[in-house]
């Protein structure tokens, strides 16, 4: 009698806990590590200032993936960004990746501009055409003070 009630209480605890874990990992974490829905591509940028892991990747304004990680290439001293792109979305190998800002001081995200090439970018491939983050400060100073050179 007493034992079964303990077992039931433990069972309820486990169910609540597992529901919470499920909520966290499926709703919030989106279970990327299953690797089923996304494939990785890489892109090199001169600067990704302001971009963070987890930022959106958009194509024509539609959410198509996420920035998975940002690392520095120690040889070339450029930023290497790993993007996770939804499976089923085929990108050509001359696609352009640009770091954009939503609004004036909003979050940075990556905008993909499709290219015309026939060959497709393979999973794990490298996007060669990139536009770095716009340095808003230098842009403003240029506008205000006029290009000194």
């Amino acid at each position: 009698m007493k034992k079964t009630s303990i077992e039931a209480a433990v069972g309820i605890f486990m169910i609540i806990g597992i529901i919470c874990v499920g909520y966290l990992s499926i709703r919030l974490g989106k279970m990327e590590w299953t690797g089923d829905k996304y494939y990785p591509v890489y892109a090199r940028f001169q600067s990704v200032s302001g971009l963070i892991a987890g930022a959106h990747v958009e194509l024509a304004g539609v959410h198509v993936g996420k920035v998975y990680s940002i690392k520095l290439d120690p040889k070339r001293l450029v930023a290497v960004v790993e993007l996770k792109i939804q499976k089923g979305l085929k990108l050509s190998d001359d696609v352009i990746a640009a770091v954009k800002t939503s609004g004036l001081i909003g979050d940075k995200y990556i905008e993909l501009v499709p290219g015309n090439s026939e060959t497709l970018l393979k999973p794990g491939g490298l996007i060669t055409e990139t536009e770095s983050a716009v340095d808003l400060e230098s842009l403003i100073s240029k506008y205000v003070f006029g290009g000194t050179k």
Binding site: S25, G29, K30, M31, E32, A53, G54, H56
Partner: peptide, 9 residues
């Protein structure tokens, strides 16, 4: 939802 990554969890 958008900010939390599986890595965090």
């Amino acid at each position: 939802q958008t900010s939390v990554l599986m890595k965090d969890i």
